[in-house]
Nucleic acid binder design. Structure first.
Lengths: 137, 137
DNA sequence: GACCAATGCAACTACAAAAGTTACAGATGA
DNA sequence: TCATCTGTAACTTTTGTAGTTGCATTGGTC
């Protein structure tokens, strides 16, 4: 796998699950489908569970399934659960040297934040249920 | 510096330049402002020069300046010049196992591409000239 | 209770992308 | 001729993350 692999893995898995909710899947099965490792799958899906998108069960016949209706899970939910922050930088140089520099930094950061918000908004407009339908516009 | 440092460095530098176009700046000056290395600056700005956003001059009194009017340089120009591709994945698993999987993969990829296009479109709506104005909404 | 199959999690290695650094050739104006 | 830039190659360091191994824990099933 390559870049954005966590988001990609999460979206693929949830979209797949949306096609047959209620069915329990093991991390081994999911890993085989995604061509990766069960532990990696559990790591990524663990975050989605923390965000309330998935539930997992231990023991025999355990595994993973959606925590709620596929139509109620948006791409933004997945994105935010993974805490990616694709556009916005976490922080910049700590030494603004002068107040003008500082103001500029804040403005650049602000614009990037705005773009990030817009990205999340766009992601929020699509549910994973829409991803698994065969007839997608 | 941290994540998205190239984009961040590029935006800061160009925004700064937009405040006083025509003035020539050395990579050493820029690096000092950004708290990084002259070679790193030249690497990043070199891409922007290839994209026609900047011009550089060698030798004494050489340096960097904007290639055209600040109002004619959008954030999308910068983003595309750096070839970042924040949202869309370059490629996914090569073994689609079954045709249904393959269709799902294409759909996920398609949605991510669409989001990416929207991101670029949004970036295209802001010029670096707007970044350096003190009165920003 | 014994056993098996799953998650949860920690610890580690492997790897790749990028920053940072050093060094130096080439260009250009003073 | 010299100082000052860019351009670039080569290398080290750092960092994020995938991949891997191992094992404790949980919970069905026999």
């Amino acid at each position: 796998m390559k870049r954005n692999s966590r988001l990609s893995l999460a979206l693929h898995t949830l979209s797949h699950m949306a096609g047959d909710p209620g069915r329990m899947r093991t991390s081994a099965d999911i890993a085989a489908h995604a061509g990766t490792n069960p532990v990696v799958v559990r790591r990524v899906l663990g975050r989605l569970r923390e965000a309330g998108l998935l539930v997992s069960e231990k023991g025999h016949a355990g595994g993973w399934r959606l925590a709620r209706d596929p139509q109620d899970i948006s791409l933004a939910d997945v994105y935010l659960a993974l805490d990616e922050r694709l556009v916005a930088t976490t922080d910049m140089d700590e030494t603004p040297s002068c107040s003008v520099e500082h103001a500029l930094q804040k403005r650049v950061t602000g614009v990037l934040e705005e773009i990030e918000e817009n990205l999340v908004k766009r992601l929020g407009e699509t549910s994973i249920a829409e991803m698994c339908h065969t007839e997608h516009h």
